[in-house]
């Protein structure tokens, strides 16, 4: 039986406990994707990233993504959790996880969920460099 997906926006993203949240007797595979802050963008050194969100809408859009993935692949458990605020290099900013009977489903579902999150969920990322700040993807 599919359990309610865990959908959250948090100030501090803890990734260590995600495995336990996804662990499930009917699952033979667990996939977890963690997005982290990279030090360089186009060879420029990033000091930090700052995330903000339209939270009520973001949670609704994240839930839609989870529901679509659950309908398409037979998933037993799903976690979509995103951080907001200022994050330094190497810090996690998003964790996506799924568990399923066989590995193909959770691999495909995680890929789908992170790709779709980046397209539809109202979360914005500002790159903070030493001398400037840039809203990512804002301009062509």
């Amino acid at each position: 039986m599919m359990q309610e997906p865990i959908i959250e926006i948090v100030d501090v993203l803890e990734v260590d406990g995600v495995y336990r949240e996804l662990s499930d007797p009917l699952s033979g595979g667990i996939c977890v994707f963690v997005g982290t802050v990279r030090e360089f963008t186009n060879n420029e050194e990033v000091v930090s990233l700052e995330f903000e969100t339209y939270k009520t809408m973001a949670l609704k859009e994240m839930r839609k993504i989870a529901d679509q993935a659950i309908a398409k692949w037979q998933l037993n458990k799903v976690v979509i959790r995103h951080a907001v605020g200022v994050k330094g290099v190497e810090e996690p900013v998003v964790v996506i996880g799924a568990s399923s009977g066989h590995r193909d489903a959770c691999f495909a579902a995680c890929r789908y969920m992170i790709d779709t999150l980046k397209e539809t969920v109202p979360i914005w990322k500002k790159e903070i460099f030493k001398n400037k700040t840039v809203w990512v993807s804002a301009h062509p």
Binding site: F51, H82, V93, I114, P122, W124, K125, S137, A138
Partner: peptide
């Protein structure tokens, strides 16, 4: 009503 400029989560 909200303005949604290009999103960039993840």
């Amino acid at each position: 009503i909200a303005i949604i400029p290009p999103v960039s989560g993840g």
